[in-house]
């Protein structure tokens, strides 16, 4: 039976130090609604299901078409972009919204994902170009190679894989799946390959590739179906080769 009203249960928290609390909302159903449009409805009339006045729920959002990664949250316990969570595609009953748990809560559904961006610095996730002046075309790349790399370059730093990973949490040193997979991307690029060893060294120590427990949860939740575990396999080979080279050089 189609819904006539949408019931939501939302975990709220005023600031990083908590404490969390739950609030319930009931809003009229309209065709084509997603979780974001429910939150937009709430801010136009911030009143709980019980009729108590409250403040609008805070969430992060930008593109609203699952290419920016901003609006990731737990929808019925699953990490995903709330823009792509269509109400009619969710099971009947109450929709539960919670902030991601592996990051510090800023407020309500907003979390601080800056550790992911910091990790991208650590693994040197960039092509070290000489400069922006005109140096002519870049290297030629086979379309098949390009397709493989494109799959990794679509990573939105959304945090779904980090949330699902049993090895990643606020306290562990593990860099997490997304930043490590970026090493695969840059090492495959003809220019990036020139300093592949720097990136590999960044993931060879503690907190790097060896901390991956191979639970494979990351690929399950990645909204862009990035072949993360394949990257880890490939990087395992690359790090082993580098380790042997370093050993022989000693």
């Amino acid at each position: 039976m189609p819904r006539t009203a949408i019931e939501l249960r939302i975990k709220r928290q005023d600031g990083p130090s908590g404490p969390p609390r739950w609030e319930e909302f009931s809003i009229p159903w309209r065709a084509g609604m997603n979780v974001i449009s429910c939150l937009m409805e709430i801010r136009k009339r911030p009143v709980t299901k019980q009729g108590a006045k409250t403040s609008p729920v805070m969430w992060e959002a930008s593109c609203l078409e699952e290419v920016c990664g901003a609006c990731t949250m737990l929808v019925n316990g699953t990490p995903r972009q709330s823009c792509a969570a269509l109400v009619d595609g969710l099971p009947e009953g109450v929709i539960t919204l919670e902030p991601l748990t592996r990051f510090t809560v800023v407020r309500d559904l907003i979390v601080d994902r800056s550790p992911m961006f910091e990790a991208l610095k650590r693994v040197r996730a960039w092509i070290p170009i000489d400069g922006t002046y005109d140096l002519g075309p870049g290297p030629r790349i086979a379309e098949t190679e390009r397709e493989l790399s494109y799959a990794f370059s679509r990573c939105m730093t959304c945090g779904c894989c980090m949330e699902a990973c049993p090895q990643y949490n606020g306290r562990s040193e593990f860099l997490g799946p997304a930043p490590i997979a970026q090493v695969r991307l840059f090492n495959a690029h003809p220019t990036g390959a020139m300093n592949a060893h720097e990136r590999l060294e960044a993931i060879m120590g503690r907190g790097g590739l060896v901390d991956c427990g191979n639970a494979q949860n990351c690929v399950e939740v990645c909204p862009k179906e990035i072949p993360l575990t394949e990257a880890f396999g490939e990087l395992g080979r690359q790090t082993t080769v580098l380790w042997l080279k370093n050993l022989l050089r000693r």
Partner: peptide, 17 residues
């Protein structure tokens, strides 16, 4: 060309251009 050098994964022709 600059974006290509930065690693943007532009689609390629059969010859890799």
């Amino acid at each position: 060309y600059l974006l290509d050098r930065m690693g943007v994964m532009f689609n390629r022709t059969a010859e890799g251009f």
